[in-house]
Nucleic acid binder design. Structure first.
Length: 953
RNA sequence: GCGGAUGUGGCGUAAUUGGUAGCCGCGUUAGACUUAGGAUCUAAUUCCUCCCGGAGUGGGGGUUCGAGUCCCCCCAUCCGCACCA
């Protein structure tokens, strides 16, 4: 019997379970290291080979760190709340908890087979009340805190109340605190809470019956299901993530993530510096609210009614030829002249009713309408028309812009369409002024010089920006400011399968459920659809009201508005549970706290996080925000949750095709015999009946009834299939299930092969064609330890110099590779090592024992087996990483390549410690030298120790 | 449009970070042992070639004794954002 993985693997998996090999302690004299995988959503389809890629990489790293003497935390759990289980529940009536439980079981079985070193005793599930208690708890903390701009951190809302009480801070409506009703006070505070309730435009997905976050919508369609999404104003819970925008940007400089992912986040946060400027209105005063004259809630220093705009190009203010308001702008109703009223109203109505998809599809289409009103350019005192257009967005800046058509492509298109004047105020060179009517596009670059721009004319653009802002600030009509594209995170979902909000409503005022009463359990309901009145599914729950006196959830029929009140009906989104799970792993069974101070003090934060880059604008932003908040309130000890982050590339599917003749639909033509692709129809064929692109004809005939009597045109007796790289999906018959590969080659081969496929970070197609090579490696590796009769047989002889060199080369390369996360090259190194040892017939313990430890992170099962065969009775996981000794690599002599004018010509052996002069003398003495220099004295000789000798002649 | 990446044999990839391009594996070819082989072993495998050599890392230029690697300009593919003022 050869290498028998099917016997070895279950045996050691059981051993690890019995010995609790992977249980980690929260206190250890060893240095700590935290390796985390993004926990999976347990979908009904089970794992495919793409899922474990990142898990294998992190597993190798975790095992490596452990062998290097670290106390390694490497947990796993499930992101168990989510839409698919609920959609399934709506269709089948099956409780989402039941399907989720089944799926988790399947995932666990599949994961176990691959031999991961997860500490399952720390498993968390987001749908477990013991876990979501702390999700709800964090929500309450967010509700009870506000963001203090001065201190740049979250502070308890009581401190804000004190400021209001003392008059240190004034409510926006200007009324003193003690004159406000309780309801008014609640509303004021709601404007500060980090978790707040507000009417906001949301992404409403009618098909899913819920609101979605921005990152859950792509091209106007929901990510899950691809249903249309519309913009709608709804009263929703939100998280004031925008308060943390600057810290979220700054924190990126402190973490070791890829530049591309950092860019994605910077882009999403969208910080831009510029100026807020007030433009006075030039309208009959009767149409405006005379006493305040304010529209944007700002304290205007000017007595004239004015409105605020945001610009990143204050230097172009001399080129403003019109203003544009977004269709939602509250000023529109007040300033529109009677003549324009009908037209403007029609436009606003049209713009509001457009679906998100329509709007996005028609971005290039210019539309807008003139209000009839004018503003005054505060620097030039020119009278400029005010327009309304939906290319100005309500959610960004102030929803109003100063349009500079000469230097903004959108303003340019608008001006061209409506025939508005275009005035050049920036030129690439000082005198490069031309007639804008001849331009095909605007000059948007922030370079060059200001022209036609009053007091900044002739300045460089950068200087002009500064000069204009200074002037504006001096005039008291605006100021420097920073805007972010990031929006607050909508936190309500009109769904059942999520965390209930620990909130009840007393006279319409949202009140938190006392912390001691958490978790607020998700109630059972009969139907998972929205109620007849359009309430979220929790509207069906009968026992869903809060009794303030005995602090219990009670029947809705008891609601009396004195002691019993309705509970919130929406639930939290998927990212709620996944935003803090990494902290919970540190102390997963704590019922007194999210996690103990000791636990977080020991583990600090995640040292290495492995997962897909698709979470760049979702989970990874929310989790950083969540952590920063927990940091502010003294829970988390690090400002950033994930120190180093590695994005594993997506694994695509490699589909196989058979080609059916169009002339004869029973005939299938082997790929290379096809003369014209138009004569055949490519048909997806299940990759499980294809091996190295060769079709298993018998299994193909059995695959589908219509192929039972298929005939074939074969090449050399084989049917060769075509292939293409596509997304891995059931419908393309290209899904590779890891279980099948484990059954056929063993987990160690699967692990090693997934690493061998290429760099972990790189997206790549799954291709089983090379797995045989890895499997052969293991058979070869096994044979090193066994004789011809497959009896374990290693010798205690001293290794030769060459064998030690092989070993230490391998130690060095593999160690370096793992540190660099370059696992594909480590696999190559192992293969080279095994080849060399096999041809040297080396079966010496002094070489094989350290080698077994090196292989252990990659192939733990075979390593454990051999480790025990070598007489150890503890796990190879607790071995010590072999020490590298440079001296075994030192050679007596070194073979130098000698090149002439950069072209390699011959090699020469020189002593390893040879000096430059010795080397040059030796080369000059070589007869070959004359041949290449033609006997002349070389112009120059370049000598790089242990590299190369180059002669310039 | 903006931002980020990538481009090397038939295929997946490697290259001591500026020093003999193509390691390792797949596939292919030939051979050995075999009743047999989807087992094992050996050898060959970038391309052209008159077997002397020559060309070659998407294309073009540059720096250098020397460039896959550094700089500039194109081309192609992939990913992210997208009316963000």
């Amino acid at each position: 019997m050869d290498y028998n993985y099917s016997e070895i693997e279950p045996k050691w998996q059981q051993f690890w379970r019995d010995q609790k090999t992977y249980c980690v302690d929260n206190n250890s004299p060893k240095p700590h290291y935290y390796v985390l995988d993004m926990f999976p959503y347990p979908s009904g389809a089970g794992l495919h080979v793409g899922h474990p890629l990142g898990y294998i990489a992190s597993d190798i790293y975790a095992r490596y760190k452990r062998l290097r003497g670290f106390n390694v935390l490497h947990p796993m759990g499930y992101d168990a709340y989510g839409l698919p289980a609920e959609q399934y529940a709506i269709q089948t009536g099956q409780h989402p908890a039941v399907t989720t439980e089944e799926n988790i079981k399947r995932y666990r079985e599949q994961l176990d087979k691959i031999g991961f070193c997860f500490d399952w005793s720390r498993e968390v599930r987001t749908c477990d009340p013991k876990y979501y208690k702390w999700t709800q708890w964090t929500f309450l903390q967010l509700f009870n805190h506000y963001y203090d701009e001065q201190q740049q951190k979250a502070l308890p809302i009581e401190q804000l109340v004190k400021q209001f009480e003392s008059g240190e801070r004034i409510a926006e409506n200007g009324k003193p605190w003690n004159e406000l009703t309780e309801k008014e006070r609640a509303e004021v505070l709601m404007g500060y809470r980090l978790a707040y309730l507000a009417d906001i435009p949301v992404n409403w997905c009618a098909e899913l019956g819920t609101v979605l976050a921005n990152d859950e919508v792509v091209n106007g369609l929901s990510v899950r299901g691809g249903y249309p999404v519309e913009r709608k104003l709804m009263r929703q819970w939100s998280l004031r993530i925008t308060a943390y925008a600057q810290r979220l940007v700054d924190g990126l400089d402190k973490v070791e993530w890829t530049d591309s992912l950092k860019e994605i986040q910077r882009n999403w946060i969208g910080r831009s510096e510029g100026a807020a400027v007030w433009f006075p209105l030039d309208v009959p005063t009767t149409t405006v609210d005379a006493p305040t004259g304010l529209f944007m809630g700002q304290v205007s220093p000017t007595p004239t009614p004015s409105f605020e705009i945001f610009t990143t190009r204050p230097d172009t203010i001399f080129g403003v030829t019109f203003m544009v308001l977004c269709p939602e702008h509250e000023l529109i109703g007040q300033i529109t002249t009677p003549e324009q009223k009908a037209e403007v109203e029609a436009y606003v109505t049209w713009a509001k009713n457009r679906s998100e998809r329509e709007r996005q599809a028609e971005v290039k289409k210019v539309s807008g309408v003139f209000t009839g009103a004018f503003a005054i350019n505060p620097l030039t005192e020119e009278r400029i028309p005010i327009w309304v257009s939906d290319y100005v967005l309500a959610g960004y800046g102030t929803g109003a812009i100063m349009a500079v058509p000469a230097h903004d492509s959108r303003d340019f298109a608008f001006a061209r369409h409506f025939n508005l004047p275009i005035r050049q105020v920036v030129a690439p060179e000082k005198d490069a002024v031309s007639d804008p009517s001849t331009w095909s596009e605007s000059i948007d670059a922030k370079t060059g010089y200001s022209v036609n721009s009053g007091f900044v004319t002739g300045m460089k653009v950068k200087d002009a920006m500064k000069a204009v802002i200074d002037k504006i600030e001096e005039m008291g009509i605006g100021h420097r400011t920073v805007n972010y594209r990031l929006r607050d995170a909508i936190f309500s979902r009109q769904r059942y399968w999520g965390e209930p909000f620990p909130i009840y409503y007393k006279d319409g005022i949202p009140c938190p459920i006392p912390e001691e009463c958490l978790p607020l359990l998700l109630p059972e309901i009969k139907e998972y659809k929205p109620t007849a009145t359009g309430e979220p599914p929790l509207g069906h729950a009968e026992i869903w009201a809060w009794n303030e006196n005995n602090r219990k959830v009670v029947s809705k029929s008891l609601i009396d508005n004195k002691t019993v009140f309705p509970l919130e009906l929406s639930t939290m989104p998927g990212f709620a549970g996944s935003s803090g799970y990494y902290l919970r792993y540190m102390d997963p069974h704590n019922d007194e706290a999210y996690f103990s101070k000791e636990a977080v003090g020991y583990w600090q934060n995640v040292d290495l996080y492995v997962g897909g880059a698709e979470h760049g604008t979702g989970h990874l932003i929310y989790a950083r925000f969540w952590n920063k908040f927990l940091y502010d309130i003294g829970m988390s000890v690090k400002d950033e949750p994930f120190q180093k982050l590695v994005n594993q590339g997506m694994i695509q599917g490699r589909s196989n095709f058979v080609y059916r003749s169009k002339a004869d639909n029973k005939l299938f033509i082997s790929k290379n015999l096809i003369k014209n692709m138009d004569d055949v129809t490519p048909i997806h064929v299940d990759i499980n009946i294809v091996d190295n692109d060769i079709l298993d004809i018998e299994r193909f005939r059995q695959w589908r009834p219509e192929f039972a009597d298929a005939s074939f045109q074969l090449e050399e007796g084989k049917y060769v299939c075509g292939w293409e790289i596509e997304k891995m999906s059931k419908s393309m018959y290209n899904v590779q299930n890891p279980d099948d590969l484990v059954a056929r080659y063993g987990a160690d081969t699967l692990r090693m092969y997934e690493m061998f496929l290429g760099p972990v970070e790189q997206a790549k197609p799954w291709d089983t064609n090379g797995i045989e090579g890895v499997f052969r490696f293991f058979k070869k590796f096994w044979r090193l330890f066994h004789d011809a009769n497959n009896t374990f047989c290693i010798s205690d002889e001293q290794p030769t110099k060459a064998e030690l060199k092989t070993l230490h080369q391998t130690i060095k390369k593999v160690t370096d590779d793992i540190e660099r996360f370059s696992f594909n090259t480590s696999v190559s190194t192992f293969m080279i090592c095994a080849n060399e040892l096999a041809s040297a017939k080396c079966n010496k313990r002094a070489v094989l024992e350290p080698l077994t430890v090196l292989v252990a992170p990659f192939a733990p099962h075979i390593a454990e087996e051999l480790w025990h065969l070598m007489g150890h009775n503890t796990s190879v996981c607790d071995a010590e990483w072999p020490a590298f000794d440079e001296k075994h690599l030192v050679e007596d002599s070194f073979t130098y390549p000698v090149s002439f004018n950069g072209k390699m010509r011959f090699t020469v052996d020189l002593p390893a410690n040879c000096t430059q002069d010795e080397a040059i003398a030796a080369i000059k003495a070589m007869p070959e030298t004359d041949k290449w220099t033609g006997g002349k004295e070389p112009k120059k000789i370049i000598f790089v120790p242990k590299r190369i000798i180059n002669i310039v002649c």
